[in-house]
Amino acid sequence: MQLSDDVLLDMHHRMVRIRHFEEAAGRLAEESRLPGFLHLYVGEEAVAAGVCAALTDDDQISSTHRGHGHLVAKGGDFERMMAELMGKSTGYCKGKGGSMHICDLDLGMLGANGIVGGGVPIAVGAGFANKYRDDGRVSVVFFGDGASNIGAFHEAANMAAALQLPVVFVCENNEYGEFTPRDRTMAITDVVDRAAGYGMPGVIVDGMDVVAVHEAAAEAVDRARSGQGPSFLEAKTYRFYNHHGIQTLGMKYRSDEELAEWKKRDPIDLFEARLAESGVLTAKDAEAVHERVAGEVEQAIAFAEESPLPEVESLYEDVYSGVAQ
């Protein structure tokens, strides 16, 4: 597949946006300026960017506790995201959800999720609605290697295949669930092996290579859109920071050497080298993208900090929808 420069630059932009947003969020958390848990997506940008670049604005995604990257990749607005992370009334969820429940239904981002595996059946439900309406939309579910051990994943995968739903399963295999390595919790190395058991095609891609991710995702999305049912994509990737927060060095559940090895394959560095080599984006132009995005993040932080906290009365709102008129 020959990708146009526009697509390549678009994916680069998405990755850079994720990186800067997450780095800033991590910094703010370190400074105790963000409440609650913060699961950063740094290191895994190629997965969300490569997949979301294969989607239309109308397609849906469901996400995980590590969900900022997915929302950014789907076009999320920095200001509303940062405000949500700070628990402000101008945030995506009016400060009620925070990092773990961030969403933008208008962008088809059906929510980060605090329950591991919780988003998988939801994406399948969206896929069902898409098939029901026959509107050509596709839903994508992002989930971790760890999440592939939970019942909800297995039930939903089987159902999607049985009902031939337009769903793409994207496993972000970063080799750990919290502080426990994958090999202590499953007897297989490749999560994609599970796809065959449900009768759906599956491939492994280098999750640090955004082009590889994109090509595989585009194929899976095409299959779904053309009524050929669900597929499974396993992206081998790695999170550069801790399970939550940014502290990493000296953590005993994974070695500093292993981290350093993976960091050599930083998905943004790899891609920028390639873009420079092929003349699509010079190092200088890439730098300009970073600077612009960094400025946007700073602006979002200022917006979020100036935003008001939610009115206390809002606690009681949004529990139920109003009665239909």
Binding site: K96, L315, Y316
Partner: peptide, 16 residues
């Protein structure tokens, strides 16, 4: 606690 899910924002949670 009131009859709502637990909110995220510290101001709301303090009320909760």
């Amino acid at each position: 606690a009131p009859f709502t899910p637990v909110p995220f924002s510290p101001t709301l949670e303090a009320e909760y």
